[in-house]
Design a protein around this nucleic acid. Structure first.
Length: 259
DNA sequence: CGAACGACCTGTTCGC
DNA sequence: TGCGAACAGGTCGTTC
């Protein structure tokens, strides 16, 4: 679930909540996840986002890369409470606990120096340019939608925002990447900027179970134009939004204004 | 290098 | 109502 806006929201909230705090205890509850005994007693120096990864930097130089995949969540609790269902790991700090929650157990937590964040694509909030995308997309024959999801090209866009960005840009998600014109690359960059920044401001999209660090829903689901709206009218042109499958992923688009 | 597809997991929703 | 199939925000490995 968590794409760039959701991960960015969590990172900002983590910065506010745990930077400068000393890790008192780690409890791993899922055998798929490692133990981190060396981190006990270390202080959190920074929290950063890289694509959809959350990087936790500690004062001894260790960096943890947390990836939430489909259903991962982080939840902060100041008071001692019951452990939420599907909690896979717990970090205890002086002022509260961080619960790492994930029903599907896809979440990964790795020592960053051992396995540097996969991908390497540019951050769409920082470095995205039409020129870069045109150069990377020139030889790609697959759909533009699959291209936008390639984390080695752009780090952070997922299925919801790929659909929304292409709607905003007025481009058919099935269009072969090498057929995208310069004018369309320009629109894609402008649309990515607009959609992602708005979604960050909204604290993400809660379509089923996304919650932020404090358990609150995002509000960008009220701004969606096509995602999960099959059968409903396009807010721009009124045509009925359709669903198809591209690259194995459910894809929503408006046949009236995406060409 | 790139495209297609199954695998990884579990819960929820849909269709008959 | 019951039950199996389909589907879900994301990568990763294999094969062609």
């Amino acid at each position: 679930m968590p794409e760039l806006p959701e991960v960015e929201t969590l990172c900002r909230q983590l910065v506010q909540t745990i930077t400068g705090q000393t890790l008192l205890e780690i409890l791993t509850l899922d055998s798929k996840l490692p133990d981190f005994p060396d981190l006990i007693g270390c202080q959190v120096l920074h929290v950063n986002r890289r694509g959809k990864n959350i990087l936790l930097s500690f004062d001894d130089g260790q960096v943890l890369a947390v990836h939430l995949r489909m259903t991962g969540r982080l939840l902060w609790q100041k008071e001692v409470t019951e452990v939420p269902q599907y909690t896979r790991l717990i970090m205890t700090f002086p002022t509260g606990r961080v619960f790492f929650i994930d029903p599907r157990r896809f979440m990964t937590i790795q020592e960053h120096s051992l396995s540097p964040c996969h991908g390497g694509g540019v951050d769409p909030l920082l470095d995205l340019t039409p020129k870069y995308l045109a150069a990377r997309g020139r030889t790609r024959k697959g759909s533009i939608k699959t291209f936008l999801l390639d984390q080695s090209v752009i780090a952070g866009i997922g299925n919801i925002y790929a659909c929304e960005i292409l709607h905003q840009a007025g481009i058919d998600p099935a269009r072969p990447t090498h057929r995208i014109s310069d004018a369309q690359w320009l629109r894609i960059v402008a649309s990515a900027d607009k959609v992602l920044n708005k979604a960050v401001a909204c604290h993400g999209t809660t379509v089923s179970d996304w919650r932020d660090f404090h358990g609150n829903e995002g509000t960008f689901q009220h701004e969606l134009c096509v995602y999960s709206r099959a059968g409903l009218p396009c807010p721009r042109c009124g045509k009925t939004v359709l669903r198809c499958v591209i690259g194995g992923r459910g894809t929503y688009f408006c046949p009236g204004c995406q060409i």
